[in-house]
Nucleic acid binder design. Structure first.
Lengths: 153, 153
DNA sequence: TGCTCGTTCGCACGACTTGCGAACACTCAC
DNA sequence: GTGAGTGTTCGCAAGTCGTGCGAACGAGCA
């Protein structure tokens, strides 16, 4: 995702208006590696701008996604998360605490897949499920705590 | 997923009762490669057994999943899909029509990932997004039809 | 056959997201 | 600076997907 200043230009260039609400969200998202949900962004935004609406957060996130400035990612059945990192990368998900981190994966071109039967893949998405360092360290015993997400494959 | 007969045994062995509703769902799921949603199964089941409840379909699917006879898979933000194939495999998803197929992937062990910083992956999930053969053939021009799912990574 | 306990099923509710429309405010032209 | 016009905000309602609850039911066993 581009900087708040560049996004301001980009919005104006598209005939979109630059409101304080949007500028706030540009700032909150820029460089954000937390993969926040709309609700989480709304909470952070509300602290700075009481009265901002969750509806506006959803709307602005949708605008940014449609401009290619954000990726929408969904892991399991939880709420959609938003990733300002639009470079080619992948994700690790802690099935215990739900934390998400970016990860770069090498060697995807060497994967051998069958059968494809005419299917034309354009995007390869890799998600590593497991335990983050913090959860692995505090794990009581072998999974006595139910995971918040089932591994979905 | 095991055969309807084996599942009948397994349910009884666990003290679970085998009802006509469950037996119907066992049959509809066994060998099913469609990755159906609960709603889709409910529609099919209703044709054979009018009066069956969507609630019962969800309940039985949850029971089967908790017994390890089914995988729950979620692609993007749509409804959960259920996969009676519990072998290690991956999925291809047509972003135009939503079709899902199983795919076997070789070479996963050779992938190089960084940074993991103590994250302990237990499951690697690979989803190929693209166009199924049918959609690729009927594609009008370059994506004039919006995809039903954004590639989620 | 009769009893017991798990199951079914409809309804209501919860989480997440989107549609709608009135009031508002950013931009631009003057 | 001011006013007009159009896009935006925001609250509410509604939609989608899934689950909790409890009364009625029925599978399985003695």
């Amino acid at each position: 995702m581009r900087t708040p200043t560049e996004l301001t230009e980009a919005f104006r260039a598209r005939g979109l208006k630059v409101t304080p609400q949007r500028q706030l969200l540009f700032r909150l998202l820029h460089g954000n590696t937390q993969h926040p949900t709309a609700e989480a962004l709304f909470a952070t935004a509300s602290a700075e701008m009481p009265g901002i609406s969750l509806r506006t957060v959803y709307q602005t996130l949708a605008d940014l996604a449609s401009m290619g400035e954000l990726q929408q990612v969904a892991f399991g059945s939880g709420p959609t998360r938003f990733d300002p990192n639009v470079d080619e990368h992948h994700h690790v998900v802690c099935d215990r605490c739900g934390a998400v981190r970016d990860v770069w994966v090498d060697g995807i071109a060497d994967l051998r897949m069958a059968p494809l039967d005419g299917f034309e893949p354009s995007v390869t998405e890799i998600v590593l499920h497991g335990r983050c360092a913090a959860c692995a360290a505090t794990e009581p015993t072998a999974s006595t705590v139910p995971p918040i997400n089932q591994p979905t494959s």
